[in-house]
Design a protein around this nucleic acid. Sequence first.
DNA 1: TATTGTTATACTCTATAACTATA
DNA 2: TATAGTTATAGAGTATAACAATA
Lengths: 159, 159
Amino acid sequence: MVAAGPGCVTDGVHDAEMDVATGLVQLTGLVQGIYTRVSERHDLTPVQARLLCVLLGGPRGMAELARCFGVEKAALTGLMNRAERRGLAQRSSVPGDRRAVQVTLTDAGRQAAIAFHAEVSAELGHLTSQLTPHDRELFRGMTAEIIARCRTSSLSDTC
Amino acid sequence: MVAAGPGCVTDGVHDAEMDVATGLVQLTGLVQGIYTRVSERHDLTPVQARLLCVLLGGPRGMAELARCFGVEKAALTGLMNRAERRGLAQRSSVPGDRRAVQVTLTDAGRQAAIAFHAEVSAELGHLTSQLTPHDRELFRGMTAEIIARCRTSSLSDTC
DNA sequence: TATTGTTATACTCTATAACTATA
DNA sequence: TATAGTTATAGAGTATAACAATA
């Protein structure tokens, strides 16, 4: 049983019979809601926010980003056009390969990315703040375990 | 520590230092990916699949659905137009109120909803199948706890 | 031939604003 | 006036298909 301290079961709303699948769907909705809300607060769409966060890891090619987002190359073109028009990221040419472009953050983009990332991390952290430190670490570990398993069995974003 | 059985730490990829926030984002991506993939398998968009699942709970009004999805009424009109055109759901008039419409599933819609729900539940269940029964129940409980807390502190779908 | 990226087109989903009809 | 729903318009995000340029 989950260290069920007082206050866990909210007034009259006992978490009766919620199976893992339902829990995962609702948790996903919660996380998405937070991600979207923080994005809006920073005047970004969720997809733009995600793009900026990925680019914090360094320059990326268009095809690489498409793979990472799990979308077609053509979708990236539109995404980058909008990001570039808004001054968040930019294309530059790659020395060795005249076909390729390199996508990098502008200063404004980097600033936005850092601010967004900090805020969304903080808000997501709050989500588990009610758990005991012990449960919180348990939860973190199990989440990491689930992800690690699925990373191997294909199909996830690789970025 | 999470009952760290063999095979949890995947070849060379130790889940080093993944914080709760990152874990939640990646888990969300995983769940979304599954939801989307299963939707496609049933020739539905994720939003349509969600609409059908909500309607499994009984007839709903347009405004009610909009509130439940966290979108404007106008968005629901488009959503329902497409769902109706595809024969998944239908509008019918409400006896007591000549402004209102009632949205219900068609037979095809109900069938699709049930099939989708079963499949997505199964796939999401697999996500935690690597955990020990004990850990799995712990995870379920903590997830339910997180959701219950946030249900009270506003901002989530109420449906 | 394979890869990188773009253009053109179409569809879904969403928001905002203005509107009708009913309560 | 408030509520239920629609229409019109605009924009983001995505897919497919066809294309250009380079490797």
